[in-house]
Simulated assay, not measured.
Amino acid sequence: MRFAWIDLREVPARQIQAVVDAAVHARMAGVLSADAKLLGTLPPTVTRILADDGPAPAAAPKKPAGKEAKSTAEADPGNSPSAPGADVLLRTFTTQGELDALAADNRATGAGTPVAGFVDVRDDRTLQLSCAGAMALPYTVIHFADPTKIPLEIVLAAAEPAEGKLVTVVDGLEEASIVFDVLERGSDGILFTPRSADEVFALARLLQATTPQLELSTLTVESIRHVGLGDRVCVDTCSHFEEDEGILVGSYSSGFVLCCSETHPLPYMPTRPFRVNAGALHSYTLGPDNRTNYLSEVGSGTALLAVGADGRTRRVVVGRAKLESRPLLEIRTHAEDGRLVSLTVQDDWHVRVLGPGGKVLNVTELQAGDELLGYLATDKRHVGLPIGEFCKEV
């Protein structure tokens, strides 16, 4: 689960208390400071990270062969790292010897406060050092001087089997959102210096931006009819759909049908695994945060939900939407509670919807009694937002 640490070291003095209060209220995972007294005031719900700005001590010289080497901490447990009032001690390391010393401190018998390492990646040597740190330490905090995310990708790949957590320094909320998505896995955590309490709350919203598991319903087809020429929308996303994925589309905001992506073979044309032939331009489609868009509003950069036949969801971004005039077909269904769910799509065999178990169904071959997968919403809508008001759609 991704997390964030708030760095207080460069927050203006007049903003520190407000930022601390916001970090606690927003349940940030940790707060980093060089002020042990300040950290001591924080509740136990927050991980308190004390910054030791000096370099890590070098590892002890190797003992002659045949004798067991011990770090200073291992030789004398009383010298194990200890930082009263802190849960984690953060130390900088710049060499392999310093990293070895930090790792030895964490292994020491009777060790006190866990020791995390900070490394500034500026070249290949420090990049390799950061990879080694990610494998050896409970937390490795990395600042990347290079704005490209290639070095982060390298560390993520190298640290894939590691038990420790990787924390990446970011300079803004936009970079935070990017860092969390690198190589799909992303950094475990970020270290962020906010300019105000508002940025702490904005970061909290970013951390909570996950997509929900939906409870899909079985819909029974009542009727199908040709309704003539109209405008329909093809939604081309920037993602590859799975075979049992599509997007939810419906004529009414209270109910949607799971429209299949073009991941399955078609006659006369290649598959387009990024596309959903979604429906008529008036239709609703469901996006993140329980918000709907008309298909007429969907365009490059719009975020939608890809939905699987088991109800799993993920955020996908639209690269392009195509509006074209085509013959249309109206599909009317009802849910188990009798609720009407309607969908208007292009009247063509290659347009498909999904049935229970992810069964692929061509819309022109549907018959009364066939079962489709859909989603029933309890919210009425105003400009795409849920609202508690009377609204009847027919």
Rank of each mutant, 00 (worst) to 15 (best):
M1V: 12
M1L: 13
V11T: 04
V11I: 11
V19M: 11
V19R: 02
D21T: 00
V24L: 05
A26C: 14
M28Q: 07
S33M: 00
A36E: 03
L38E: 12
L39D: 12
G40L: 05
T41Y: 06
T41D: 15
P44V: 11
A51S: 08
A51V: 02
D52E: 13
D53R: 14
P55E: 04
A56D: 10
A56M: 13
A69C: 10
A69G: 15
K70S: 00
K70P: 00
E74R: 06
E74V: 06
P81I: 03
G85H: 12
L89N: 05
L90K: 01
L90E: 03
T95Q: 06
L99K: 01
L102V: 08
A104V: 03
A104P: 01
N106Y: 05
R107F: 08
G112T: 04
V115K: 14
V119F: 08
L129W: 05
L137H: 03
L137I: 03
T140Y: 13
V141N: 05
I142P: 04
F144W: 07
P147L: 04
I150G: 11
P151N: 00
L156S: 10
A157W: 12
A158M: 08
E163S: 12
E163N: 09
G164I: 06
V167N: 01
V167Y: 07
D171E: 14
G172T: 00
E174L: 10
V179N: 11
D181Q: 15
S187V: 05
G189Q: 10
S196R: 02
D198R: 14
L214Y: 08
L216D: 03
T220N: 01
S223F: 01
R225G: 00
V227E: 08
G230M: 04
G230C: 11
C238W: 03
S239F: 12
S251K: 01
S253T: 00
S253F: 00
F256Q: 03
V257I: 03
L258Y: 03
L258Q: 06
C259G: 07
C259V: 14
C259W: 00
S261H: 08
E262N: 14
P270L: 09
R272M: 04
P273V: 13
R275D: 07
V276M: 04
A280H: 07
A280K: 01
L281M: 02
S283R: 06
L286F: 07
Y294H: 14
V298T: 02
G299W: 04
S300T: 04
V307E: 00
V318F: 09
P327F: 07
L329S: 08
L329F: 05
I331H: 01
E336T: 04
D337Y: 08
L340M: 15
L343E: 01
T344R: 10
T344F: 06
D348I: 12
R352A: 13
K359D: 12
N362Y: 14
N362S: 15
Q367E: 15
Q367G: 11
Q367C: 10
A368W: 13
G369A: 15
G369T: 14
G374V: 07
A377E: 15
L385G: 03
K392N: 01
